[in-house]
Design a protein around this nucleic acid. Sequence first.
DNA 1: TCTGGGGTCCTAGGACCC
DNA 2: TCTGGGGTCCTAGGACCC
Length: 449
Amino acid sequence: MRSAASILHLDLDAFFAAVEQRDKPSLRGKPVVVGGVGPRGVVSTASYEARVFGVHSAMPTHEARRLCPNAAFLAGRFRAYRASSAIVMGLLHELSPLVEPLSLDEAFVDLAAGPTTDFSPDAVRALADGLRARVHERTGGLTASVGIGSSKFIAKVASELAKPDGVRVVEPGTEADTIADLPARAIPGVGPATMERLARLGVRTVADIRGLSHGELVRELGRASGEWVHALAFARDERPVVAEREAKSISVEDTFETDITDRAELDAVIDRDARIVAERLARSGLFARTVTLKAKRPDFTILSRSLTLNGATDRPEVIIRVARGLLDGVPIETGFRLLGVGVANFTEAAQEELFEPDAAGAVVQSVTGTEIPDTANPTPTRDADPTIRPRWRPGFLPGVDVHHDEHGAGWVWGSGLGRVTVRFETADTVPGPVRTFSTDDPALHLTEA
DNA sequence: TCTGGGGTCCTAGGACCC
DNA sequence: TCTGGGGTCCTAGGACCC
């Protein structure tokens, strides 16, 4: 926590709905609900006119329709939202180079990293008013709420208190008092489950948390969460504003209008999602080592299966093959309401860390790496497939190349120069046994799937 | 007519290595 | 021969956020 109120949090009011009302004058002053419009959709944003009826974010759309049948229900126009968001983020960058977007409609700004020198309450209030006026003008009428405080937590609480269309500055020294009477739920990271546990300890407000010992909280909530909640209850928050955070995962998922049981249909969903994931990977110039399959059962329980490859990939056929393999190990009789494919564990191509020593201590090629000399085993027995991009040579692709011998069939798990790891498929389990072959082992029979 | 999609972080157990 | 601790990686699930 700083001594000056130098962290700003901006939150656009009912953002998606406000953009719709701005662009369609007939919707102004009327309830607007943006979100999933299908039978299993949920509300993303409700305009303030719709909130009067009890409609709010994350509510099932069918319930919103029941509460407010006269509202306009819209699926959302993300291109328009991104455009307005970019204008606002640009305005924030005029205040400081250190801007941390949290979503399209929200960001932190570290004013101390910019030209601002006067952090007196009056000065930062004037700064926030100027910012809000520019947002309104440059976006064609959108309103924003702005909070300023000595930490991220306090700035965010302040913008919440300022809503809608207002400013709130929490003066240094008044932080603990400001949050004392808020529900414990106001602490980020305290959701329904944590709130339930805290309630059992008699906690309702932030101040109530202060009555518990550090040890009690850690015992009840676990190490990380306990310490976090304890610190924030006393308004202790040292998190820096971080401008650019690198993505750690990419995923695509679909909720179906009716549950799907059919394997072929599930495979088709995997294919579609995996191709989108691969496209986004390639566009980011990233390669992923871990593929995850996610499924939601009719009873809403979520199941996930993941597999980490020896090498990284951005190829759709690899992601598809791995994801389908993961589905093999999952009972599908009850059907799923959602299926999704994700990737994680990113590397960038042709970087040194992609080369790893093999069992013998020699350096071998990772599947995304560039070939490097291996004097111990200089000759891969198979030429590079010309359809495979150069970085893949000598080109045994995890999940694509298939091995077949008298012990059964399997697919390539990973490959380095001079070795190929094969995972055998078994009748009822994934993963099956794994075996590593030398590339000149006559028992190794590889074909492309 | 039941409850999205895109993420992040944490926990816990097992494998494996030193 | 037995015991054992620490560290890292992987996997599965859960909580949470916008």
